[in-house]
Design a protein around this nucleic acid. Structure first.
Lengths: 125, 125
DNA sequence: TTAGGTGCAAAACCTTTGCCATCCC
DNA sequence: GGGATGGCAAAGGTTTTGCACCTAA
């Protein structure tokens, strides 16, 4: 079914080694340092596959380009409106919220995403 | 400074008349019904301007295409993972959350966005 | 052996932009 | 009149895809 390849493994490792929520292109540049012949298409293909398998998280809510997160646990993000960097926030996830919304709407709520916006420390001056 | 045009007024009116959080292209199609010569570029230009002025909200977190919201008050959204529709959720906004995160991170937190995911009523069967 | 993965390049998509005509104020 | 706005089309940038070749199982 799923085969291993050094490209796929490099992509996942690089994603897990950083906390910077990189874009596909950034990941491509990093992979290229160890596999110079890798193609951008391969990076996109693997990111898409891993996202569908729940191995990684695609952050669809962070601006123009998609960003990826090697940690697929449910956690929150802070995005700086000035420099665009994304940080993990360890505020606990409130699952009661999902239940309240499920009750009031009749929808089946599986999870929620929380994104804080503002200015990071570096950009407040 | 800012002049009026029937294109701009039509775009804003259409956006305010719907609760469907449309894409730029959907808005373009609607505007075209009353102004057949309108161009997609004009729709994008005006959406961008209104977004910068805070008149409308761009929902950057809803999938591949941007979606727009004629209601710029702070409120939450539910996105159906099956049909992709976006609904407003009237769960109250918790401003304490922003303060907690500000305290623990040192960031300046101006607001947060909350997006629920799951299946809407129509897609549960 | 062979289904799945890769590289490459083209295509597809969404969004922005330059240029010139047109319209408001 | 003169700056703001629009129409058109081309450019830009990101993501997807078709195809021939390669490779892990």
């Amino acid at each position: 079914m799923h085969r291993r390849s050094k490209q796929k493994e490099a992509i996942l490792r690089i994603l897990r080694e950083t906390t910077s929520h990189p874009t596909a292109d950034w990941i491509y540049e990093q992979v290229r340092k160890e596999i110079p012949t890798v193609s951008l298409g391969t990076v996109y293909r693997n990111l898409k596959t891993m996202k569908e398998q729940g191995v990684i998280l695609e952050m669809e809510f962070s601006g123009n380009l998609s960003r990826f997160d090697g940690n697929s646990d449910n956690h929150h993000h802070f995005r700086c409106d000035n420099c665009g960097r994304v940080f993990d926030i360890d505020e606990p996830v409130d699952n009661e919220l999902d239940e309240r919304v499920a009750t009031s709407t009749g929808f089946l709520v599986s999870y929620h995403r929380l994104e804080f916006r503002g200015l990071c420390i570096d950009c407040q001056h």
